[in-house]
């Protein structure tokens, strides 16, 4: 019932600017068509004829702030899957974690930042569980994402073929169930091990609400959406939320080399970990 409303280049830049100021995410020009489709219905619901009207609504209406959340949700849709870039998780589990436990540590706080629909934190839980680590130490996993919709989906724990493509059969068997409608759900026992929250990496108050300091932070394939200024802000925020000797894992292609920071970076066979000394 809704024809697509056309978005001019100028309107796209303005929307991009609004999204950037809220989330530090830069929109690629290729996203314009996608945004038109996503937002046309929203324009009709709000009685707007053009994207210009919508932009002014976000900026000048008292309800604009909550509309901005809707907009960010509409634009931050990122597909991911279980055990993505697993070698990084394996390195932490098989090298760094045992070392910390050898030194007497028995409690670990983990932050999965920009967790999307939860595959990363749940992957960690499944691996910890399968290694019997929950009998040897306590693990508190907090997972955050700016997009409230994906956080809700993460809490629900229902997944499709794409997300599950890397899950070994024995783990599928052990941790997932399929119902009569072919919906695949993660077991409640695993879901209960992660606390999900909505959180914005460039909003200091939001980051404070994540709660406390962490032994390890995973923030992978997210900083590529930010410019250098925002990247610096985020990695330094992470630094302040890490315990001494805590570590940060970024995506494979994400490097700190162009940024001002205090981490000590350590290369391992399939990646790099950044350590707070």
């Amino acid at each position: 019932m809704f024809e697509t409303t056309k978005m001019s280049d100028d309107e796209f830049l303005q929307l991009g600017d609004i999204i950037y100021k809220k989330s530090a995410i830069t929109l690629l020009r290729e996203k314009k068509y996608f945004m038109e489709n996503r937002l046309t219905r929203r324009l009709a619901e709000l009685d707007f004829n053009t994207f210009k009207d919508y932009i002014y609504y976000i900026k000048y209406d008292p309800a604009g702030e909550s509309e901005l959340n809707y907009l960010v949700n509409a634009t931050t849709v990122n597909e991911t899957y279980f055990f993505r870039d697993r070698s990084q998780i394996d390195y932490w589990l098989n090298v760094m974690l045992p070392e910390s436990m050898r030194q007497g540590k028995t409690e670990f706080r983990i932050w999965s930042a920009a967790c999307s629909t939860g595959e990363e934190p749940y992957s960690l839980v499944m691996l910890l569980d399968s290694m019997g680590m929950y009998y040897k130490a306590r693990f508190h996993i907090v997972a955050t994402d700016i997009n409230s919709n994906v956080v809700d989906m993460a809490k629900k724990g229902e997944y499709g073929e794409y997300s599950l493509k890397n899950v070994p059969d024995e783990m599928l068997e052990k941790y997932f169930t399929k119902n009569s409608n072919n919906v695949i759900t993660l077991s409640q026992r695993i879901k209960d091990r992660v606390v999900f929250k909505t959180g914005n990496l460039i909003d200091p108050l939001s980051c404070e609400r994540t709660g406390g300091n962490f032994d390890v932070i995973f923030c992978r394939n997210v900083l590529i959406y930010f410019d250098n200024k925002a990247k610096e802000q985020v990695i330094n925020m992470f630094y302040s939320h890490l315990k001494t000797s805590g570590c940060l894992f970024l995506g494979y292609a994400e490097s700190l080399s162009a940024l001002k920071h205090k981490y000590h970076s350590l290369n391992f066979s399939s990646g790099t970990v950044h350590i707070k000394e």
Binding site: L28, E30, N78, N221, I224, Y225, A253
Partner: peptide
């Protein structure tokens, strides 16, 4: 893909 595009951009 979005990921690859951004890496090309960053580099």
């Amino acid at each position: 893909s979005d990921n690859v595009y951004r890496i090309l951009q960053t580099s």
